[in-house]
Structure formats: structure tokens, C-alpha cells
Amino acid sequence: MQLTGHITPESLMSLEAYSKWRKAHKPEVIAHRKLRSVQLGEHINLQFESEMTIRYQIQEMLRIEKIFEEEGINGEIEAYAPLVPDGGNWKATMLIEYTDINERKRELARLIGVEDRLFIEVEGHARVYAIADEDLDRENDVKTSAVHFVRFELTPHMRASVKAGAAVKLGCDHTHYPAHMQIPLETLASLAGDLK
């Protein structure tokens, strides 16, 4: 899987080529995803996306759905490519995870707006709150969704601080889900690689 900085139909592998590549490289992608996964409290997981995770997602969708026509390929790219960070931000898939279905239903009702209360705090800088669900609204008056897509925009000074080794806190100040934690150093090193 070649990272090119821009996902196009021409930069994706054919279904046959991807099938061969997948057998040899799936463990690397899983390790990369695991490194970029941050658990915030007991029930929120943020999967920070990268070009590799999104390319893999697109290739997996093409494989599973057996999509090989241009229109279908372009549709998958349009759906997922906006989740690739652009050098000035971090983008993540936010998962609200409750195993018990009744507890999940109750908590999703209590957590309306939680996606807007997520923040990143780079050491020495003000908090940056998430910009959530730019593709479509994922909550209603009754409950929030268990999946959200969030973006954290970092100023040039914040990006320079991260690259220089500043600590970064991930947090949430929603009334019903107060939580914060330092992003682990290995994860932060991977995330710093997304920044220009």
C-alpha cells in the first residue's frame, strides 16, 4: 500500500493485487490502528485516522462489496477520504461503546452533545474542541449516535509544540462524561507524524 498524500482511484490497488497485499500486510495495519486508538474513560474510544487507515478502509470496502467499477470506487473514496488528516489537524472516529443494549440506549440519551465536548489540549496552549459530524448530523432530540467523526484543528504554534515533544491531553467536559488523559507517547509520536 503506497501512501501518496492523496487517495485517487489510480492510487488504489486492484482487487487481486489488494488480496495478495492484504495477506502479507494486514498485521501491520492492525498494529498501526491499535497504536492510534485512544480509550477515554470506560466508554469512549477514539480511532485517530491516517492515510493508511483510510486507504485500508476503502480497499476493504471495495474487497467486501466486490466493487471494481469507477463509479463505485469513486463513491468509496468520497465517503472515506475526508477522514484523512490534512497536516493541520487530527481526525478521528469516535466510538461510544456499551456492551449492554439497555445501558447503551440509556447512556446515548444522556450523552447528547458529547461529541462537541471532546477536546485536545497541547501543553502550553488553550484547549481545542472537536468539530463533529461535518458529513451529517448524527444525533436527534432523543439520543446521540454511537459513532461520530471528529476533527481537531491545531494552530501552527500547537503543531510546532507537538513536534517538539509537548504533552497532549485528550478530554471531554460533557456533564455526564467528564474524563481526561494524557495521550501515550507512542501514540503521540504517530499523531505528530500527521502534522506539517
Rank of each mutant, 00 (worst) to 15 (best):
N74R: 15
H148T: 00
F152T: 00
L195N: 06
F68S: 12
S19W: 03
L3W: 08
E107H: 14
Y18A: 12
R22D: 15
V114C: 07
Q57H: 13
L170V: 03
V162C: 07
R33L: 05
K91C: 02
K143S: 15
D86T: 01
H32S: 15
H32W: 12
Y129F: 15
T155R: 03
A92F: 00
G88V: 00
L46R: 03
C172T: 10
I73F: 13
M181K: 03
G5A: 13
L46Y: 02
E69C: 05
N140W: 07
D194S: 10
N45F: 02
A164D: 12
M1L: 13
I183R: 01
I54G: 01
E78W: 05
I64V: 13
R104M: 09
V162T: 03
H148S: 02
E123N: 05
Q2G: 14
V38Q: 01
I77C: 03
G87S: 07
G41Q: 11
H6R: 12
G193S: 14
R63M: 13
L111V: 04
H6C: 09
V29D: 06
W90F: 06
S50G: 05
E51W: 07
I101G: 05
P27N: 13
E76G: 03
A126H: 12
Q47P: 00
A109M: 14
R106P: 07
G87R: 02
E97I: 05
H25V: 07
Y98V: 07
Q182W: 09
E60P: 01
L40K: 01
S50D: 13
E153V: 09
E134D: 08
N45M: 09
A24H: 10
T99S: 14
E28T: 13
T4C: 12
N140K: 10
V168F: 06
M52N: 05
E107V: 00
A31R: 15
I77Q: 01
L62W: 08
G5C: 14
K169D: 06
K105I: 08
G165C: 11
E134F: 06
M94A: 05
R36Q: 13
E97G: 04
F48V: 04
N140E: 06
L83M: 12
G113V: 05
K20V: 15
F48N: 00
H148K: 03
L154F: 14
W21M: 11
V150E: 00
K20L: 14
T4I: 03
L108R: 11
E65N: 13
K91W: 00
N102D: 09
E153I: 08
D173Y: 05
Q47R: 11
P9I: 08
A164I: 02
A79P: 01
V84K: 07
K66V: 12
K169T: 12
H180I: 02
I112R: 15
P184D: 11
L95E: 09
P184T: 07
R127P: 06
I112H: 06
A79I: 08
I30W: 07
V84N: 01
V168Q: 06
I67C: 08
N89L: 00
